[in-house]
Write a protein that binds this DNA or RNA. Sequence first.
DNA 1: GAGTGATGTGAACGTCGTCAACATGACAGC
DNA 2: GCTGTCATGTTGACGACGTTCACATCACTC
Lengths: 227, 227
Amino acid sequence: MVTTSDRVSYHHGDLRNALLATATELAQAGGPAAVQLREAARRIGVSPSAAYRHFVDQADLLTAVATGVLNELAARMRAAMAGVHTTAFPRLDALARFRAVGLAYVDFAWTQPGLFRTAYASGVSLPDGTETAGPDPSALIGNPYGILADVLDEMADTGVLPRDRRRHAEVAAWSGVHGLSMLVLDGALRGVADDPQELVDATLEMIGIGLCAPTALGAHAPAPPGG
Amino acid sequence: MVTTSDRVSYHHGDLRNALLATATELAQAGGPAAVQLREAARRIGVSPSAAYRHFVDQADLLTAVATGVLNELAARMRAAMAGVHTTAFPRLDALARFRAVGLAYVDFAWTQPGLFRTAYASGVSLPDGTETAGPDPSALIGNPYGILADVLDEMADTGVLPRDRRRHAEVAAWSGVHGLSMLVLDGALRGVADDPQELVDATLEMIGIGLCAPTALGAHAPAPPGG
DNA sequence: GAGTGATGTGAACGTCGTCAACATGACAGC
DNA sequence: GCTGTCATGTTGACGACGTTCACATCACTC
């Protein structure tokens, strides 16, 4: 498709965005390992070293891709949330939104495995948007973690989620959904169920019950007999 | 420590195991990306190409490391399980073992991040031990997934876990624990809680309740109002 | 004691990330 | 309108990695 030289002018004009877009395509097709400076430059028709005018590193490029992907994921989660219409039953609404957000997360992971893996390959932190060792805490606008927190807030406000269990609810919920996505992506659950939808339903139900059910059973947890 | 030539004989004698051990050290120190053929060969004092007599690929070496790590993880889970002594209360015993297995999993992930990541970097499948595209389904002896299944069986037998929710219980439980491990490892939860132990407790409690609590609340799940 | 097959060596190829020296040209100030 | 400047792109190189191929070594069998 690209004939290695359909660029006329010496200067590209928007190379940074072009690299980012191409690198994202690479990530989509082959995951984080496929995000290579040389390949991206080659596809654009530019020399490899040109990339270093816009990214300090290959890791830097990867982080930029990851941030973009997290924004996209957040957008889908928010869209799914907005798709649940408000009714006269605020508690059911909150639960429905929670479910919708979870489904959107898993759906993204499974339909875009390359992008999903890339999102977590570089060390971008969800809660605050800070990178593991990067100076740019701002680029993350639509934070997936924040959306989840919003839904959980709604659940707590309406009363489906007991106040005293609100505290670490996002960690527990996120863990369930993220773990499910990862395990299926890694093929760790191959052969367990023919229909992956069953797995999502079972997991989301477990999370919902685990967060909201009366904690009568929880009494045993702090002191298990055997140590 | 190794002076690049403390081997006297031309033939090493046990190069495959030496490579595997060294590669595992590399994985422990630097994760899957650090598992390099040349570096492993260099440390042993052998030429890079010698490795190809024992592993078809670098991916093959990585898979071998991953399988070993999964065995180690399984051993720890089984040890944790065995550490819970049987009492006169079989239900509490089952729950205590479940908790112990979950703790062992998270503990391994956090104390051995490099190994843990490597375990899931190559596509080794937990349920049956098959690899994504590999012909060797057997090498996995102590299967973590099988251990979890055993504990869940015990929970179902004693009655803490309702029979009708046994079916996908391992997926849901595994997802919760695995997701928590991954998220913390990726730094995704930085700043959420000072004490990570809180997170484990909250997540394990959620899983326990989610699996075992009376499903009165589950009735709403199948048909959310908004679609 | 000769031959053979498993195991290790040496040198090479192509790819990757990265850097330093140089080329180009958009744009400001005269 | 000309010229100098600086961001942006090129060229060519370096070292590391995975991988391969022809060759060397040596344990073991007949």
